[in-house]
Design a protein around this nucleic acid. Structure first.
Lengths: 331, 331
DNA sequence: ACCTAGCACTTATTATATCCAAGTGCTAAA
DNA sequence: TTTAGCACTTGGATATAATAAGTGCTAGGT
């Protein structure tokens, strides 16, 4: 590699990102003040090094995954955000400072709007939450709502119809016992302790303890599944790009978005903004995924942007850097 | 119309539903024990009546929307559910009888699985819920969770960070006042009564009443938006069908599923199982939507199945009839 | 040692022509 | 009222040719 080759690669990548057409030697003559033959010679070096590829023997060049990677690692300069976009995000980070539960959600909606890619929030699985409080709200017709709240403020609720001979007071009693004994327990250990510590106690104090036990057992069990913390915005954006212009590609991508266990694989534990190009990501070899962790007022997770491999890296990385800084307060 | 023409229409519709190819006169000779010319004569009558159409001058016939409609209204016999499918649904309706909050959700997941179409749950907008109880759960670092629960057991929760000089006790006090005065108020009137009845009272009793007021105001406001009660299952199923084999059709449909206000238009207030073919529905002229209301332990809404116009009507209607009966208990 | 003009060659894309299968409409006879 | 027969239409598949874009390579120039 030398200076000119790097510049050439940069030019090819950015050109291809913009126009989605293989880049020919002729089109770069002016920029490099030399003939197309010279460019061709340099291009064939870049091809030997594996940074660019041809679709067929006489086509222009497109960046390979290795080429994109070299570009993002060495040549790209993250774009500073424009005032307009900053403004949109400011309203989330500053104006509404008390309301936090869906700051992240709103954030990715704006990301999709700005970037025209698909964004995903992967809420952290609840394993490091601890039990803060359970409570019962009685409704009419012997229905009740059981609530479970964790120290990080995540709430799950569930409605039940009580058997006819049930007594709400007994359930409230059980509630108090659970709160007294289990507050602070990691949420994934609660079920176990409920069975071995709480069940014997309420068995003594409460007549029909079985159904009372079941109510809480169910409520906690739900928590550990916790399938609800994936949020998408701008799914349809992916379909805008010409690389997904054949039906099977689209079907493949759409189906993959439907598959929760696959989407979970997007998650990444490294801090900072990370880029996974094509084969590097565990989701789909035809997309690039850029991730960023967040930890905002105790809510943790990953924000991911999914787009074509020829993503506007400079723009997206600039944006995610900004968001990363704002959604991770060092307390 | 006469008996033979009805049978012919029935045959054409069912044939097209199964094979997705225009139905030619020859293929029906055996069934009707006559020559293709006879069939052609009858077909041209059905075409004049508007029940079937041609793609081009020399193609076989396909049912028109009017034809489908005549079929579902007069010729189709809803298929009884098979034991296997009944079994899948029984586990929801009977075995887990205490756990109701996502019975409907699980239900449509099974619907999508059985039918291979897309199903949607449109939760009833919360306008006829009344306030049952608000409560506050304090967390660490002067964070709190505010909970709002309605008489039908719908719960919204929100997390806030309190200002430094705040006193949780004052918020709890406000909670009690609200519960005493507003329980039973329709949820969409709560904001108003909060401002005119509660605000003056807490203004007297609580020092920094402004932020306390804001917490509850926000929490109730969220409720009236209530954008979260749409649930999809099997979105990708739509892409399986040959009628959506061109890219633009797929893009259009996928984008429409993304558009919440459009999806809301699927909702339908009539009771029973209703069929909306093509132009009859407000969502997309190229699909059929079959809806059924549910009212299960106080949770109300619409279940909708979205599929191509050549939907397997008999199967889907049979299934939805069954579900309708089970998700609407007359108390 | 590097650059460049020139040219033969390759490939995708587009347009055009041709052929075939499926199916219709119409006529005339049963 | 039904049917056999036939001319006609259309979409789809396949083959062919023309064109544009771009490459690799050679040979001569700096």
């Amino acid at each position: 590699m030398n200076e000119r080759r790097e510049q050439l690669l940069k030019e090819i990548v950015e050109n291809y990102i913009k126009l989605v057409k293989p880049v020919g030697s002729k089109s770069l003559c002016k920029k490099f003040k030399c003939s197309s033959a010279t460019i061709r010679n340099e291009m064939s070096v870049l091809e030997d090094l594996g940074y660019i590829e041809k679709n067929h023997i006489s086509s222009g060049r497109i960046p390979s995954e290795k080429g994109y990677k070299y570009y993002v690692d060495n040549l790209m300069k993250p774009k500073e955000m424009t005032g307009e976009d900053v403004l949109k995000l400011q309203t989330i980070f500053h104006n509404h400072e008390i309301e936090i539960s869906d700051a992240v959600t709103k954030c990715v909606e704006i990301i999709s709007e700005i970037t025209n890619y698909t964004s995903v929030v992967l809420g952290k699985s609840s394993s490091d939450n601890t039990l803060q409080q359970v409570s019962i709200i009685p409704l009419a017709n012997s229905n009740i709502v059981a609530l479970v709240c964790t120290d990080k403020g995540i709430v799950e609720n569930r409605q039940y119809t009580l058997p006819k001979n049930a007594d709400v007071n007994e359930i409230v009693k059980a509630c108090e016992i659970i709160n007294k004994m289990l507050t602070g327990t990691p949420i994934n250990e609660v079920s176990q302790r409920l069975e071995y510590e709480i069940k014997p106690i309420i068995a003594k104090k409460i007549k029909q303890y079985e159904y009372v036990y079941n109510i809480f057992y169910d409520a906690f069990n739900d928590f550990s599944k916790n399938t609800e913390n994936i949020f998408f915005s701008g799914k349809a954006n992916l379909l805008k790009y010409p690389e997904y212009s054949n039906v099977n590609d689209i079907k493949r991508i759409v189906s993959k978005f439907e598959d929760e266990t696959l989407v979970r694989k997007i998650e990444n534990d490294d801090d900072g903004v990370k880029i996974f190009i094509g084969e590097e990501n565990n989701f789909d070899p035809n997309v690039t995924i850029i991730t960023s962790k967040y930890n905002y007022h105790g809510e943790e997770g990953t924000i991911a942007i999914v787009g074509p491999k020829r993503m506007e890296y400079a723009k997206v990385v600039g944006l995610l850097n900004y968001i990363h800084d704002n959604l991770n307060e060092k307390k």
